[in-house]
């Protein structure tokens, strides 16, 4: 699903959410699992989607909302085409991860947890990606970059267009 579609909330097709929730309900899956799959489908959890899931799973909306806000891997906002995660694990921290994040924040003009207005980039800091040996680590749409410093940030960002 492209970001253009994501940006206009009214056009979201809720059928997929309904289908995923129904399938999981039959399997006895947990609400967390359902939300994960639904988020994979839509890229984020809009209010409409969350309402559909709660209804299908027969739980109060407050419970679904509670989960979606408790766990950091859920997003209530659309994310950018390039989702940039900066590892802030201890190993990355002692090797200067804060500077890498600072550089990205300045270059993209957003803070961690935000998405650029054109929905191109979203930036987040994560607590350890488990690739500590090669820290600082930056992951963009699932692709890992190791030993990142200010200069490497320039290279990485250049490659994104």
């Amino acid at each position: 699903m492209s970001s253009e579609q994501l940006s206009s909330v009214e056009e979201i097709d809720l059928a997929a959410a309904r289908r995923i929730a129904a399938e999981h309900r039959a399997k006895g899956s947990s609400l967390v699992t359902v939300l994960q799959d639904v988020q994979t489908e839509y890229g984020y959890l809009s209010r409409e989607v969350l309402e559909v899931v709660a209804e299908q799973m027969q739980v109060p909306l407050s419970q679904a909302y509670g989960l979606a806000t408790f766990y950091t891997s859920f997003s209530l906002q659309p994310r950018g085409r390039y989702h940039i995660s900066v590892c802030m694990g201890t190993a990355c921290h002692v090797r200067g991860a804060a500077n890498v994040l600072g550089k990205l924040e300045r270059d993209l003009g957003i803070k961690a947890g935000q998405t650029t207005a054109d929905l191109k980039h979203s930036l987040e800091s994560v607590n350890c990606l488990g690739a500590c040996a090669a820290g600082p680590i930056v992951v963009i749409n699932g692709v890992q970059h190791g030993k990142v410093d200010s200069r490497k940030v320039n290279e990485i960002l250049r490659e994104l267009d």
Binding site: L61, S62, Y65, T69
Partner: peptide, 20 residues
Amino acid sequence: KVGAVNFAHRGQERKVGTPY
């Protein structure tokens, strides 16, 4: 057993309230 309110967010940000 209505579930109109629940916890949302976590840690420092934790709140009780209705969804959204």
